[in-house]
């Protein structure tokens, strides 16, 4: 029943042997910290589950030890010390810590499952209410600004609006021409081939859009910009 041998001397390993008196001894060796346990955890779990009954445990071959390893052995022993255990004093302190710790007491539960739907529904109602309040507040705020604008239209920043439209128009000339080119391609009535008709429609669309954009820009430059 001896376990598979581990090629890496640092890897945690278990092996069942018989001593001179014929007593079964589980020899625990290697590093028993979480990093070392990780890659071979399924193997160790299977072995630990198989090693039941009146066994002697020898942990003197353990090179590194930490709570994760101690807890694995603790659980394999039935959440108590095994009857016969041999280990180093510094490793014993981990088990002492576990024995005196709070682990065997009450179990942690996040929320009883039966309350979850009610809790979710309640939170949804509250969230919906908060959203309604925020929407009403936003609409009220917009309405007040709108009314104020209607009552005093002269206070609107016309010049700034005009400047922005002018700047946008001037900057957008290139991209507008490009979009117009695509429009021209799309609206070409016989679009299956790029013939004379296509070229005409592209040129026409670009010309129209550029003229419109230029007119728009010129108008706004005279209206708003000093």
């Amino acid at each position: 029943m001896a376990s598979s041998a581990q090629p890496n001397p640092l890897a945690p390993s278990l092996s069942l042997e018989r001593d001179a008196t014929g007593q079964s001894v589980v020899r625990v060796s290697g590093a028993w910290n979480l990093r070392a346990i990780g890659p071979v955890a399924p193997v160790l779990r299977r072995q630990l589950a198989a090693y039941t009954g009146d066994l002697q445990w020898d942990l003197s071959g353990v090179t590194r030890f930490y709570h994760a390893g101690a807890m694995m052995l603790w659980h394999a022993w039935g959440k108590r010390r095994a009857g016969q255990v041999e280990m180093r004093a510094k490793h014993d302190s981990f088990f002492t810590h576990i024995e005196t710790g709070p682990t065997v007491a009450s179990r942690y539960k996040r929320q009883p499952e039966r309350r979850r739907p009610l809790w979710v529904a309640g939170r949804s109602v509250v969230t919906l209410g908060m959203h309604i309040i925020q929407v009403v507040a936003l609409l009220g705020s917009v309405s007040l600004v709108f009314l104020k604008t209607l009552r005093h239209p002269s206070r609107l920043p016309w010049k700034e609006i005009s400047a922005n439209v002018y700047r946008t128009g001037a900057q957008a000339l290139g991209i507008t021409a490009l979009v117009a080119c695509h429009f021209g391609l799309c609206i070409e009535p016989n679009g299956e081939s790029l013939g004379v008709g296509t070229t005409n429609s592209v040129v026409a669309a670009i010309t129209i859009v550029i003229i419109a954009d230029a007119c728009f820009t010129i108008v706004f430059s005279h209206v708003g910009i000093s």
């Binding site: 979480l34 346990i37 990780g38 994760a68 807890m71 694995m72 659980h75 710790g101 709070p102 942690y108």
Partner: peptide, 27 residues
């Protein structure tokens, strides 16, 4: 992904105990 949930539970409780946090605060 190396430890069973039971072991993780006990390890977490142990770590919380080590830093002086009572188990009542776990949830």
């Amino acid at each position: 992904k190396a430890l069973d949930e039971d072991i993780i539970h006990d390890l977490v409780m142990l770590k919380l105990d080590m830093v002086g946090i009572e188990r009542g605060h776990a949830s």
